[in-house]
Structures are given as C-alpha cells and as structure tokens.
C-alpha cells in the first residue's frame, strides 16, 4: 500500500482548513475549518498507523475525535451566545481582546 495519496489528501484537507480559518469571517465556517484540520490530522495518523502496523496512531485519532467532540460543544455554545448578544457570527466583530 502506498501512503502518498493518503498523506497528500491529508495535507490538502489541512491546507483548505488553515486557509479557511484565516480568510473566513463567519464563526461557524471557521469552526468547520478547524474540524477539517483535525480530521486531516486524523487521516495522517491512521495512514501512518496502517503503514507501520501498530495501533498508536489509531488511538491518537480516537483521542482527537473525543477532544473535537468536546470542543464542538464548548465552541458552539460560545458562538451561540456571542450571536445572541451581538446579532452577528462574524469573528471580526468580537475583537474586544485588546486595550
């Protein structure tokens, strides 16, 4: 089995995710791009686990999924509450973290 196509796909997904985080303003989209990057990592983990024949990478992938699930809960809650107070889901509107 050749790993290159899988790694290439993983890198592509990660890049799409990263660019999305940087250029999109909508918090939901940014959030989905973060998920995309996490899953790109998962793909790389399982690919290498398969190539090397041990389960470490698979376990790591499970951990990432668990963390991602938890993160979704917290993140969505934050986004919803920001939307409620500001009537906007744009990340640029929530720029209060400065003097």
């Amino acid at each position: 089995m050749s790993v290159e196509p899988f790694i290439g796909l993983s890198a592509l997904l990660f890049t799409i995710g990263a660019v999305g985080v940087l250029v999109r303003r909508n918090a939901i989209v940014v959030f989905m791009c973060v998920e995309l990057m996490l899953n790109a990592c998962n793909l790389a983990f399982v690919t290498f686990a398969r190539a090397h024949g041990n389960l470490d990478g698979q376990i790591a992938a499970f951990f990432v999924m668990v963390v991602a699930a938890a993160e979704v809960v917290v993140g969505l809650a934050i986004i919803v509450s920001i939307f409620r107070t500001r009537r906007s889901a744009s990340v640029d509107d929530a720029s209060l973290l400065k003097l």
């Binding site: 990263a18 985080v21 940087l22 303003r25 990340v91 640029d92 720029s95 973290l97 400065k98």
Partner: peptide
C-alpha cells in the same frame, strides 16, 4: 501593544 489587534484571525495567522 499594536500587535494585539483583538482579531481572532490575526492570532490564528500568528500561530500558523
């Protein structure tokens, strides 16, 4: 202080 813009995306770009 100017570096701290408050924009999430700026911070993300810095991290990347």
């Amino acid at each position: 202080r100017r570096l701290q813009t408050g924009f999430v995306r700026t911070y993300a770009a810095e991290i990347f």
